[in-house]
């Protein structure tokens, strides 16, 4: 009589147990980490002083520094972000097509392209930059390629998801007209994913502006190089000038993207 009841109870009990296990593991991992992490307590207590000291040295901004060095480096950063985003499309679009199950109905192909997309996303853009600096030497090329290779996974994944959401009835109708595969792609898939495509690319460009600002720290060009130099020389007022310009560019890029999106919809 009580079989159903009993099973139901057991299920919630399991669930409770699972939740409890998660809490327990979280607390245990946290405590273990706190006890073993290599942090000198004195440094920790001193941190607020050090940080406020650093900020006091940063004021006022060295505005004279902007036209001399910062502006050109900032432009270079924007170029890296934009070129990187354009270059990434060469790889991301085919991979997205191969990854979308409603374009290529072959699990092996889907899986292979997914492998590339996941690898691209798992490696941070700074690490990609290190690799490309090793290949091409310090400079802009490494930056552009780092941005491009990191973005492939992002754009490819989101684009593949957008493609998988389209209305397949339309595709069926176009195939029924005798249209070739390429024509179906152009007249069936493309009009349907077009808004998502531009939205995804803009979104990634916005992220890339932020990311390209730090690539210079490993020598891959842009404003990061200037920031790194100023830091190594302890020129705090220049550092704050650079930080402020990065902040301004990031905000401007975000406003720009929001405006373009509004107009597109």
């Amino acid at each position: 009589m009580s079989t159903i009841n009993h099973q139901w109870e057991r299920f919630t009990f399991q669930k409770k147990l699972a939740r409890f296990a998660v809490y327990l593991v979280t607390v245990a991992a946290f405590l273990a980490s706190i006890r073993t992490v290599d942090v000198i307590p004195e440094f920790f207590y001193d941190a607020p002083n050090q940080i406020s000291d650093m900020f006091s040295r940063m004021w006022p901004l060295d505005t004279a520094f902007y036209p001399i060095t910062v502006h050109a480096a900032l432009m270079e950063t924007l170029h890296i972000a934009t070129l990187g985003t354009l270059v990434t499309l060469i790889f991301a679009v085919p991979l997205a097509l191969l990854n979308a199950r409603n374009v290529v109905a072959n699990p092996v192909v889907n899986w292979i392209s997914r492998f590339f997309l996941v690898s691209s996303r798992s490696v941070n853009s700074l690490v990609w930059a290190l690799l490309f600096v090793a290949v091409f030497g310090p400079g802009v090329i490494a930056g552009v390629l780092a941005i491009a290779f990191r973005s492939v996974g992002f754009i490819g994944k989101l684009l593949a998801e957008a493609i998988e959401e389209i209305n397949m009835g339309t595709i069926e109708a176009l195939r029924a007209t005798g249209a070739s595969w390429a024509s179906v792609l152009i007249k069936g898939y493309w009009p349907q994913v077009k808004p998502a495509f531009f939205s995804i690319v803009l979104f990634r460009w916005d992220i890339n502006v932020r990311e390209s600002a730090v690539l210079g720290l490993v020598g891959a060009g842009g404003i990061g190089v200037v920031l790194n130099d100023a830091m190594n020389l302890f020129e705090w007022q220049k550092v704050s000038m650079v930080l402020f310009s990065i902040f301004a560019v990031v905000i401007l890029a975000e406003i720009l993207v929001v405006q373009i999106r509004k107009r597109m919809i």
Binding site: T170, A173, A176, T177, A179, S180, K187, Q192
Partner: peptide, 29 residues
Amino acid sequence: RRHIGMVFQEYNLVERLTVIENLLTGRLG
């Protein structure tokens, strides 16, 4: 296939294209 016209329950037009271009997609073959 291009000599076999097909009409669907859910119309299956390319929603974001104009009406005239939807007609012209019949010539894609």
